[in-house]
C-alpha cells in the first residue's frame, strides 16, 4: 500500500530480507517542548509525537524538579523568589520567631481570662430565670 505522505517526511533506507534497499518514510518530529512562561526550549524532554509520549515512561518525559518539563529553571526561580518575598516574610511566620517575653505572656493570659469572665457574666445576665430554676 502506498502511504499518503508529504515530501517533507524523513526518508530512511532499510535493507529488506531480499537484499534490496528500500526507502521507508518517517513522520516529521514535532517542535521541541517549551517553557510555559517564557517559551525557552526545555532540555531533557524527548521530541516525539504524542502517541509515543504515551508509550515512554514518565521519568523520561520530565525533569526531577518541581514544574520540571513545564517551566524552565529560570522561570521557576523567579516565581519562587517572588513567592518568598510575598509569603514567607508575611506577618504570620515572623511573629512566630519573636518569642513573647514572660511579662507579655502574663499580660496576654490575664487578658484572655478577663474576656472569659466577661462572657460568662453576660451569659448569666441574658438567661437568668429558666436556667436558675433548672439548677
Amino acid at each position: 500500500m502506498v502511504q499518503k505522505r508529504s515530501r517533507s517526511w524523513r526518508r530512511v533506507k532499510v535493507r529488506t530480507p531480499s537484499g534490496a534497499v528500500a526507502i521507508r518514510y518517517r513522520k516529521p518530529k514535532p517542535n521541541p517542548p517549551r517553557c510555559a512562561k517564557c517559551g525557552a526550549e526545555l532540555h531533557g524532554i524527548p521530541r516525539v509525537r504524542p502517541p509515543e509520549l504515551h508509550r515512554i515512561a514518565y521519568s523520561e518525559k520530565t525533569v526531577n524538579r518541581p514544574y520540571g518539563g513545564n517551566l524552565c529553571p529560570n522561570c521557576l526561580e523567579t516565581a519562587i523568589k517572588e513567592k518568598v518575598r510575598l509569603v514567607v516574610l508575611s506577618e504570620g511566620m515572623r511573629t512566630d520567631l519573636r518569642r513573647r517575653s514572660r511579662k507579655a505572656r502574663k499580660k496576654a493570659r490575664r487578658k484572655r481570662q478577663r474576656k472569659k469572665e466577661e462572657a460568662a457574666e453576660k451569659e448569666a445576665e441574658e438567661t437568668p430565670p429558666s436556667n436558675a430554676s433548672k439548677a
Binding site: 518541581p66 519562587i80 517572588e82 513567592k83 511566620m93 512566630d96 520567631l97
Partner: peptide
C-alpha cells in the same frame, strides 16, 4: 523553640501556583 516548626512542616514546599 521558635514555633517555626509547624510552619516548616506545613510549608515544606512553597506552593507557587498563584505567582505563576
Amino acid at each position: 523553640k521558635t514555633k517555626l516548626y509547624t510552619a516548616f512542616k506545613r510549608a515544606a514546599r512553597l506552593p507557587i501556583e498563584d505567582v505563576l
